[in-house]
Amino acid sequence: MTHYVLLLCSFEEQLQQHVRVHAMEAVMACWELEQTLQSLTGASPGEGTGATMSDDEDNPVDSESNMFDGNDVSDGMGFGMLTEGERSLVERVRQELKHELKQGYREKLVDIREEILRKRRAGKLPGDTASTLKAWWQAHAKWPYPTEEDKARLVQETGLQLKQINNWFINQRKRN
């Protein structure tokens, strides 16, 4: 479980870093497009089809530094009112980020999942294996301490490791 928590903390840090990087790249790209559009058309940011990302801020550095301050959370990310194109760009960046992070953490999450499932299964022997050990136990109820030869034979019959056989007998003696 500790590994899982550490992995999630690492995942959160990387996710925050990716969001910062991709969001800043998207803002800078939009700002550059606006500047190019302005130089080509001569139109000011308020003219045309609607508001742009630079309506409030003409300085891209100020815009980037305020992007994560959390004051404007109308779309959940602090970007203010977005146009349809800007929303689709943000959504595409989110999807690409999600895919990239999934790929990066998939193997680690699978390993952790397998470890958790293995720990849940621990302690349960297959029925035929347990019945073989119980049969030996009942046949030797007066002295339930198998010899090394008995243990070797039980290892062959059950497919368990010697340590598992020893632990089963230790636990069985404690139970009875």
Rank of each mutant, 00 (worst) to 15 (best):
Q164L: 04
E148P: 00
R120Q: 15
W137S: 10
K142R: 14
G123Q: 06
L125M: 09
E149T: 13
W143R: 14
P144R: 11
R153A: 09
T129D: 05
W137T: 11
H140M: 11
K163L: 14
K151M: 08
H140Q: 08
G123D: 03
A130H: 03
S131G: 04
N167W: 03
G127Y: 13
E149C: 04
P146R: 06
A122P: 00
E157Y: 08
Q138Y: 07
T132S: 14
I165R: 08
L160D: 08
K134A: 15
Q156K: 15
H140W: 10
T129Y: 02
K124F: 07
S131A: 15
P144V: 09
T129L: 03
F169K: 09
A135K: 15
L154H: 04
K142T: 12
L162C: 04
E148F: 03
A141V: 07
V155G: 06
T129F: 01
R121E: 07
Q156Y: 10
N167H: 08
P126T: 02
L154R: 03
P144K: 08
L160Q: 08
Q138W: 08
W168D: 02
L125A: 05
T132K: 15
A130Q: 08
R120T: 09
L125V: 02
R118G: 00
A141W: 02
K142L: 10
L154F: 09
E149I: 11
K124Q: 06
F169M: 07
G127N: 12
N166T: 14
Y145L: 12
N166R: 13
K119M: 04
W143C: 02
D128N: 14
L133N: 01
R153S: 06
L162M: 14
A141H: 10
Q138V: 07
N166P: 01
W143L: 08
R120I: 14
K124G: 00
D128W: 10
L125Y: 07
L160S: 03
F169Y: 13
Q164Y: 02
Q138L: 09
G123A: 07
Q156H: 12
E157W: 12
R120Y: 12
W143K: 12
Q138I: 07
G127R: 14
L162T: 12
T147L: 13
P126C: 00
T158V: 06
I165Y: 04
D128H: 15
L154C: 09
R120L: 13
W168T: 01
H140G: 04
F169C: 05
